[in-house]
Design a binder for these strands. Structure first.
Lengths: 225, 225
DNA sequence: AATTTTTCTGAAAGTTTTATGAAAGGGAGT
DNA sequence: ACTCCCTTTCATAAAACTTTCAGAAAAATT
């Protein structure tokens, strides 16, 4: 189980990252500014640090430089669009990757996975891997779906949506929660986008589309009869 | 038991939110403007703040910003449709969610539950997720009803009405309270609408329609003999 | 028993919500 | 810059649900 340190002054951001990271099976700790981050890092080793650039007390760049004096921990920097772009891009401060705010949690998690894998230290998190129901098999970590032994190809969004629904099987999921979980907390697109993806997903599922139930006025539910 | 602070200058709104929140098992305090909210927050910690945007003295945005300086409490903003839409949507003020007035209490409470759960601090109030009586089974989180193992399909209003009655089983519910709880505080339709939905609900419940008792001159009650 | 009040019911009209197909938009790779 | 594939938007169609209304029925009152 890999350990991640999240450093950001905004509670909301820490909260979002924690939620997604824990969902992926990581262990999360938090710090609200650079000074605190350094202090925590002196005591404890992490497999990855996710750090905001703009923070009170001590900014992300300085903290990063300081931590690098005694630790090799991979660091992913977060920054508002345009903010100090050059510096980040140049990786002059020794960060391993950077992500622009507002970020898509999914994308951040992919980077997290990539960086940790690359660093080769932390073990990739183990999650409950396979869900089966009759001829339907969903392999979360392989990111595959098979029906009657036959592989079903899906688009990324279909996987995201479907996996989220399967992981929450038997629970009424509101449109709002589906959108904010699958698209991210900052998606404000068309109301009908979700419908369209449900449509595509149902098409991909063929016979098993019966598992996706419309809850009028609420949202959808994945159920195994 | 999670604590919620409701900030709104309209008594009516505070009253409605208090009522619903207490019904869901939260503890509620009130403030009538931003200044007061800040003062209360300095003294006490809440698990969630529900705050109106438009208020005398100090508006919701400013109050939100101020409170964020010393507290991480999740905040849900309330605003009239169209009002400051952009700001809210941009999450620039650090609120965790927003709800447009006039809101449906049901939707607001779902968001409250989601935000509090997400923040992970306050314990989610335990509502029994499944209610059973003889062959009748009501699963609130799945939003399903089964009779003798057989799924009963209902319309949205039937679910809302029925779930509300079951959650208040054994209690006399006045027509007024049923309407304002299920339809919302701003429903001004026909007197007979409730009757019609009770009729439909009874039809769906078949044998178990005996559990819905008419209280002449008052309203209805759900009872398990 | 007649009258008044309240609830029940079925049908029709009205509204809202979801499904769908086509097309436009976007991004990664060539 | 072009192509391909995926995502999103949009307009329309199709369901599904809600509300209204008026007459019947039931209960309470006079």
């Amino acid at each position: 189980m890999s350990k991640i340190l999240v450093v950001d002054d905004e509670f909301r951001i820490r909260q979002i990252i924690r939620k997604y990271a824990e969902f992926e099976g990581y262990e999360v700790e938090e710090a609200t500014d650079g000074m605190q981050a350094i202090a925590i890092c002196r005591q404890k080793e992490f497999d990855l640090i996710i750090m905001d650039v703009m923070m009170p007390e001590l900014d992300g760049f300085s903290a990063c430089r300081e931590i690098r004096k005694f630790r090799d921990t991979p660091i992913i920097m977060l920054s508002a669009r345009g903010e100090e772009y050059d510096k980040i891009h140049g990786f002059e401060l020794g960060s391993d990757d950077y992500v622009v705010k507002p970020f898509s949690p999914k994308e951040l998690m992919m980077r997290v996975g990539a960086v940790i894998k690359r660093s080769g230290k932390g073990a990739e998190p183990q999650k409950n891997d396979v869900f089966t129901y009759e001829g339907l098999e969903v392999n979360f970590s392989a990111r595959t779906v098979t029906i009657d032994g036959k592989r079903v190809e899906m688009t990324p969004k279909e996987y995201d949506l479907f996996f989220y629904m399967v992981r929450n099987k038997g629970i009424a999921l509101t449109r709002e929660s589906l959108i904010s979980e699958v698209w991210g907390y900052d998606f404000f697109g068309d109301e009908r986008t979700l419908d369209t993806h449900i449509k595509l997903l149902r098409k991909s599922l063929g016979d098993y589309s019966r598992c996706i139930v419309t809850l009028r006025g609420v949202g959808y539910r994945f159920e195994t009869v």
